[in-house]
Design a protein around this nucleic acid. Structure first.
Lengths: 215, 215
DNA sequence: AATAAGCAAGCAATCGCTTGTTGGATTATC
DNA sequence: GATAATCCAACAAGCGATTGCTTGCTTATT
């Protein structure tokens, strides 16, 4: 093959292990962990039914690896997108858009696997929790910054949780071929948070049209 | 034969079908549809493993019945709570609180089963969709009313979807013994929507007070 | 030669569900 | 009012399929 990274020590990197990981993640997201059989995964990468167990000790291990890999990739994308953006309001907009991308438009929507956490045992769940905590800390920092600057009334935890709810729930209804693009959803969410949903009297900039066609 | 069920206290008319339904819903919410076996359900109500199939044709049928029952009960609670509340802003507050109750505090959190929709076939899913559409229509009507009164900048669909995200995501983090009560969460969500998260300069006139009493 | 990567076959457990049956309650018949 | 017929709700047992995973062997590359 092309990649010549073989004679390494412990971690058998690259090769078809990655393909296995990505395919498993995709199937887990599409059909759910329990509804996806190890045979499905093997078949999807062109292996026999028992071969995935050469690379992963168990089906749970496959899920755990996929979740951690996905969460860390999302974390890196988030960091890359918002470093250098000085204005916290603008940074928050970038983070919202990036987060939606992490959830819904990356080649495989790995972070959405958090739904499947309950299929893991306690220790694996703790590892996942550590990764998500790191992710959320970045958000809380920016929200705190906005509050310190007096641009948010409060940055207490309900705000962050409600914000994540707005965004993460998109996985339940967003469709790539639907009426709303990720850019539009991101803008709507950021506007709701940073400018509010209420119509403000003349002074503020809120001239937009009243309503569109209801669904 | 030894363990004759003597459920004398139970009313003769109250079939054990209902008990089956409630128990199944609880287990489905707790462990997920796939991870819950029909044997689990049978055992939880004190039956033998095959007996539930006297009342329900299939496991899927049990899920469908539980979902529809839960959705309609929630719909009734929503209607009961918000009829007679004239002011649309106050009505929205009541709806938000009632919705959180439907999700998180009723004896069994049946509406949270929407997560499990994908375990149903197409026709069953269509029935569920019809029930949820009816539920959402009530919300859209109130949002439209607020927009018409000029109190919302827009009532286009993203707003409703983001709002449901805020609330429904609570199922992922809310704990009854946690720091935030449902009342507090409901207030935070309603404030975010109706008053915005931003700190406004004192000059802005619009809705100043935090909680408003119906006029 | 040595090792990484995968195949072929199947095991043990579990799954949803079916079949045949039973005791008790209800209803119909005499 | 006693007896027979019917029905309800559940049990007992197990079938066929599927599941995650294991074992023993083969290939390909270095």
């Amino acid at each position: 093959m092309t990649a010549g990274r073989k004679r390494q020590g412990a971690p058998p990197e690259a090769n078809r292990r990655d393909e296995l990981l990505r395919t498993a993640a995709r199937l887990f997201v599409e059909k759910g962990f329990d509804a996806t059989t190890t045979r499905d995964i093997a078949e999807a990468v062109g292996m026999r039914s028992g071969s995935p167990f050469y690379h992963f000790r168990s089906k749970q291990d496959l899920l755990k690896a996929a979740m951690i890999e996905g969460l860390e990739a999302g974390y890196r994308r988030l960091q890359a997108a918002c470093t250098g953006v000085g204005d916290p309001a603008q940074r928050l907009r970038v983070m919202i858009r990036t987060h939606l991308g992490n959830l819904l438009e990356s080649d495989c929507h790995t972070p959405m696997l958090i739904y499947e956490s309950r299929s893991l045992d306690a220790t694996a769940r703790a590892e996942i929790a550590a990764a998500t905590d790191r992710y959320q800390a970045v958000w809380q920092a920016t929200l705190d910054e906005l509050a310190t600057l007096g641009r948010l009334r409060s940055s207490a935890s309900p705000l962050r949780l409600l914000l994540f709810g707005m965004l993460n729930w998109g996985g339940q209804w967003y469709r790539p071929d639907g009426r709303l693009s990720l850019d539009e959803i991101a803008e709507a969410a950021a506007d709701l948070l940073l400018e509010g949903a209420i119509a403000r009297p003349a002074g503020a900039a809120a001239p937009a049209g009243k309503r569109e066609t209801p669904p």
